[in-house]
Structure formats: structure tokens, C-alpha cells
């Protein structure tokens, strides 16, 4: 809906432009905005994945008109506590190249040594401290993944380059209430890194109106014959869902006169950020001719 308000804003500006008949100079210009002091906070972003070496990014928030790149503090120690109580320190080993990388490699400031073993129900804890006394903590539980029942496609009636297919992903929501999902569709060969690139589609959904029933998430007519499509369905917890929504709302409020600024809903204490275990399933399909 906020996207819609953005469209409204553009239409309003368009109306102004029509009225101005285009001959009266720019309607958008630079101004000086003196912002009051802002005290930066630790920002933690940690997505654990079963079978992968745990890593996370610890950065700091900055004044809005300050430096461009994220500030990576060098005095931070990170401890990940496994379900069995073992405290695993994550080493400060930032891959700074990822900050300017465009291939999809994610930046991490700290990383572990061995792949993570995680099963549904497992509880993990995170402890992040710096030498200034700032401390961020968090707890998360791995959810039971939800299987993709099927994926399917359908072509439109057009020919040539305009012949396109939409893509459907079908799954069934468990009978428990308050389930949240994130679905990504990537185009291309997974073996060639397609899953690291920007997805064609990135949806979030909740079962508030469809609890315990079949879900079908679809796209517009956008795929061509021979496209390889990989659907990845994550079951996410409510705190991650709220974090995503608040990030979206906060972004949409900047530049949208109809938007209402939103606070960020983190699931960590003492700073900003998200700590979660990704619990996903996937299915790949090649669109036939």
C-alpha cells in the first residue's frame, strides 16, 4: 500500500508539472539541512544457515549526511552460543571487497570456522561487544521449513518476443497461526551463481487470512521459454518479518510526502539489527517451449 502512496505522490507531482507547463524552472533543488547530533549505534546483521559457516556483519549507524560506506568497528568481539551451550567465538575477518562487490557476495565482519549444524527447534544466542561498552545480544530459534508442493507456469496468448509465462509457487501453510514467509525467484543457472544475484521476485507473506490453507504466490507474465527459475521459500519468524517491514516503511517514508516515518523493529537488544536462522526449501524448473 505504501508503494501505492508513492504512485499517488508521483501523480500529484505530475499534476503540478502539467500545471507548470514545464517552463518555470526546477521543482526540486538542493538545500542545506543542519541536522542535530546523532549518536551512532552498533548494527548487527546475522543470518545463520544450516551447513554454512556462520558469519555476521557488525557495522555502525552514521549521521545521515555523513560518510557513505558503512563504518566497520574493529574492536568488536562476537560470540555465538550453540544449542548445546557451546560458545563459539567468531573471528574478526572482514571481507571488505564485498562492500564494493556487485556479484552478490555479502559482507561479513566476523566469521566462524566450521559449518553450522542446525535443526528445527534449535536455539542460538548472539553476544556482540565493543571496547566502548556497547553490547548487542539476541536469541533466535530455527523454524520448521515448509516444503514447496509444486511450481508451475503458464504462457500468455502472444507470440514472438511478447510470449511470456507467469510462474506459480504452491505450498501449504501449517495449521499454526502467525506464520510468515519469504519467497524469492531467481532466474538463471544456480550452478553459475544465479542464486547470489538480485531475485526476479521477492515476496513476503503471512497467513493471517489463509491459515492452514494452500498458498499460491504468482508473478506477472515475465519469463521466457528456457528460463531456469529457482523458487526459494523461507519460513521466517515474526520478528524478522517485522524487521523487514519496518525497514521498508522507513525507506518509503524518505521521499514520499504521504509516508509516515517508522521506527526500526530490531530483534536484538542494545543496538539495531536482526539475528535469525534461515529455514528454507527450494525448487527449480526450466520453462519449456
Amino acid at each position: 500500500m505504501l508503494d501505492f502512496t508513492g504512485k499517488l505522490a508521483k501523480y500529484a507531482v505530475l499534476a503540478g508539472g502539467i500545471g507548470g507547463l514545464g517552463g518555470c524552472g526546477a521543482l526540486q533543488n538542493d538545500i542545506d539541512v543542519p541536522l542535530p547530533f546523532y549518536a551512532s549505534e552498533l548494527v548487527v546483521e546475522c543470518y545463520l544457515e544450516p551447513g554454512k559457516v556462520p558469519s555476521l556483519a557488525v557495522t555502525t549507524s552514521v549521521p545521515y549526511l555523513g560518510v557513505v560506506l558503512p563504518q566497520v568497528p574493529t574492536d568488536v568481539t562476537v560470540t555465538l552460543t550453540l544449542p548445546n551451550g557451546t560458545a563459539v567465538p567468531l573471528t574478526f575477518a572482514p571481507n571488505f571487497r564485498a562492500l564494493v562487490d556487485t556479484t552478490g557476495e555479502k559482507f561479513h565482519s566476523h566469521i566462524g570456522r566450521t559449518p553450522l549444524v542446525a535443526r528445527p527447534g534449535d536455539v542460538f544466542k548472539l553476544d556482540v561487544r565493543d571496547t566502548q561498552g556497547r553490547r548487542v545480544t539476541g536469541t533466535t530459534t530455527m523454524l520448521v521449513p515448509v516444503a514447496i508442493d509444486s511450481v508451475e507456469h503458464k504462457f500468455n496468448d502472444k507470440t514472438g518476443a511478447e510470449r511470456k509465462a507467469y510462474f506459480l509457487t504452491n505450498f501449504r501453510d501449517p495449521s499454526t497461526p502467525n506464520d510468515y514467509y519469504r519467497l524469492q525467484l531467481h532466474r538463471g543457472n544456480p550452478a553459475r551463481g544465479a542464486l547470489r544475484r538480485r531475485p526476479e521476485v521477492d515476496y513476503t507473506a503471512q497467513d493471517r487470512l489463509n491459515n492452514g490453507r494452500a498458498f499460491t504466490l504468482g508473478t506477472s507474465y515475465r519469463f521466457s521459454a528456457n528460463d531456469t527459475i529457482t523458487a526459494t521459500l523461507y519460513r521466517i519468524d515474526e520478528s524478522f518479518y517485522r524487521f523487514q517491514q519496518s525497514v521498508r516503511d522507513a525507506r518509503n517514508a524518505n521521499g514520499n510526502p504521504f509516508g509516515q516515518p517508522s521506527a526500526i523493529f530490531s530483534n536484538v537488544q542494545g543496538g539495531i539489527g536482526i539475528f535469525t536462522v534461515l529455514s528454507g526449501t527450494s525448487a527449480t524448473k526450466v520453462i519449456p517451449r
Partner: peptide, 20 residues
């Protein structure tokens, strides 16, 4: 009006977008 005082970056989950 309400203006942001600070900002931070979000990378999001793997496969979501470019790294920055």
C-alpha cells in the same frame, strides 16, 4: 516534518540483492 538523523545499511539475506 520528520527527517532522519541517522542511517544504516542492510544487506539482507543471501541472494536478495547486491552486497551494498
Amino acid at each position: 516534518t520528520t527527517l532522519p538523523l541517522g542511517r544504516f545499511g542492510v544487506q539482507d539475506i543471501p541472494g536478495s540483492s547486491t552486497s551494498i
